[in-house]
Design a protein around this nucleic acid. Structure first.
Length: 277
DNA sequence: CCCCAGGCACAGC
DNA sequence: GCTGTGCATGGG
């Protein structure tokens, strides 16, 4: 096992609605695993919040956790803003992750009007024996209705077919400017503004992307009195610019955890937890 | 029975 | 351009 050279809150980063949330399995506290190219890949939380990874996946791990992002600097840039500052302090060392574009596309096509646990089980039903999401040519021939994808089945089947036939150049999106990339992705069936932004942020690493789902919309309305999608986008671009994606993810996860805390039954008498982090 | 979920496509203004 | 509605499916 090798340690990455920067701190990561591994559980939160892996389980905050990013693609790893859907594809990795939590084995014990702070241990995560998936297969890649048929080989098991394990991640663990080491000393001083360092991430430990199987040595042969060191490069992949640095890419997954976006080693080149200077999180301290990004957080400082974003912390000028009050409501966002609160979310930042809730989750020290929560990082954005960088996944594969195809994986991200499958995840967020599946996500529309759906719950996270269900997105997870649906996506995992499309993972092949090697650990990766099945390639487009296989998904385009899968009976997705039978697997429970519902009305998203046709979106996923058609999008897969377009990519499999080479009629849509998914890797090519990486070299487009953000706005063009966003427009281009939205030509795929089932890909609207929100799904496109998620793919761009988590699959391609466009950090200026600001996906607006129901939770982020709620947060932007509560904190900033902005209920119009275009005005939110404009505000995010002006205020958070090249790091809007980070702002979005912190606001999103803060809103989610707040809601979960509200709906939790009052717990007492609460013995001291043995495995508290 | 209801409502909701990391929305989208489509119709009607 | 904006606003409303139906949509598969499962959980609360």
């Amino acid at each position: 096992m090798r340690a990455l050279g920067f701190p990561v809150d591994l559980p939160t980063t892996m389980e905050s609605g990013q693609p790893p949330h859907f594809l990795w399995t939590r084995t014990r506290d702070a241990f995560f695993e998936r297969k890649m190219h048929g080989i098991p890949w394990r991640l663990a939380q080491g000393e001083a919040r360092a991430v430990r990874t199987d040595a042969r996946f060191l490069t992949q791990a640095n890419r997954l956790f976006r080693a080149k992002d200077n999180l301290a600097e990004i957080r400082f840039e974003l912390s000028a803003d009050g409501p966002l500052r609160a979310a930042l302090s809730s989750f020290p060392h929560l990082r954005l992750t960088q996944s594969d574009p195809w994986e991200a596309l499958v995840c967020y096509l599946t996500s529309s009007n759906n719950h996270i646990p269900r997105i997870r089980s649906l996506v995992r039903s499309l993972v092949g024996p090697g650990g990766e999401v099945l390639p487009p040519e296989e998904i385009s021939e899968t009976d997705l209705r039978k697997k429970g994808f519902g009305y998203r089945s046709e979106y996923l089947r058609k999008a897969s077919a377009l990519i499999a036939r080479g009629e849509f150049d998914l890797p090519g999106v990486a070299s487009l400017p953000y706005e063009t990339a966003r427009t281009e992705l939205q030509t795929l069936p089932g890909v609207g503004p929100k799904v496109a932004d998620c793919i761009l942020l988590y699959g391609f690493g466009f950090l200026e992307s600001f996906p607006q789902d129901v939770w982020v919309k709620r947060a932007m309305k509560e904190h900033y009195r902005l209920s119009n999608e275009k005005k939110v986008a404009e505000y995010a671009g002006r205020k958070w610019g090249e790091f809007a994606g980070y702002a979005q993810h912190y606001l999103f996860w803060q809103a989610r955890t707040d809601a979960a805390a509200d709906s939790l039954p009052p717990r007492f008498p609460s013995r001291p937890r043995r495995n508290a982090l």
